[in-house]
Amino acid sequence: MQGRNHLFSSGYPALPPLGTREEFMTAMREMVEDNAPRVFALCEELGDRHDAVLHYWGMAHDDHADLIGLGGSLHIGFRDAATARDRLALRRNLHLVWPHQPPTPT
């Protein structure tokens, strides 16, 4: 199995199947798990912990991060999740939040 974004073309050479259907599906699932991005969010703190607003969802890959604004208002790439927060936090008190991890100060 090759890494992400490997697309087969119609001219792909005829090769024998890679194992049984179950073995192939297991290998494909492992490839996806190995290449899955980590999900994060950028949330704005309102006041001094009075409320919060979720503004962006992101996906962190090994070499970059993709960010999507709620409602599709923004789709942009950054070097990493922290850079996305830093660039967009110029006028807002944004926090980088990683779901399913213990909270850490940002």
Rank of each mutant, 00 (worst) to 15 (best):
F8P: 01
M28L: 15
E33C: 11
Y12G: 00
R29N: 13
Y12C: 01
E30R: 12
L15G: 02
Y12S: 01
G19H: 01
E33D: 14
M1G: 13
N5D: 10
E33P: 05
S10Q: 10
A27N: 10
R21I: 01
G3T: 10
M1C: 08
V32Q: 10
H6C: 11
S10N: 06
V32K: 07
A14L: 05
P13A: 07
A27I: 09
P17W: 02
S9M: 07
G11Q: 09
R29P: 00
T20K: 07
S9I: 03
H6P: 00
L15E: 08
P16F: 09
Q2F: 14
L18A: 00
G3A: 13
V32W: 04
L7N: 11
T20Y: 00
M25L: 12
E23R: 15
T26S: 12
R4P: 07
M25D: 12
P13Y: 07
Y12R: 03
R21L: 06
A14D: 11
S10M: 08
T20P: 03
G19D: 05
T20G: 02
N5V: 03
E30A: 15
Q2W: 15
M28Y: 09
E22F: 03
P16S: 04
V32S: 09
M1K: 08
A27H: 13
E23C: 04
Y12H: 04
P13S: 06
Q2N: 06
L18R: 01
T20H: 05
E22Y: 02
P17Y: 02
M31C: 11
M31G: 05
V32F: 14
S10L: 08
R4F: 11
P13T: 01
A14Q: 15
R21Y: 09
N5K: 00
P17G: 10
M25H: 04
Q2S: 11
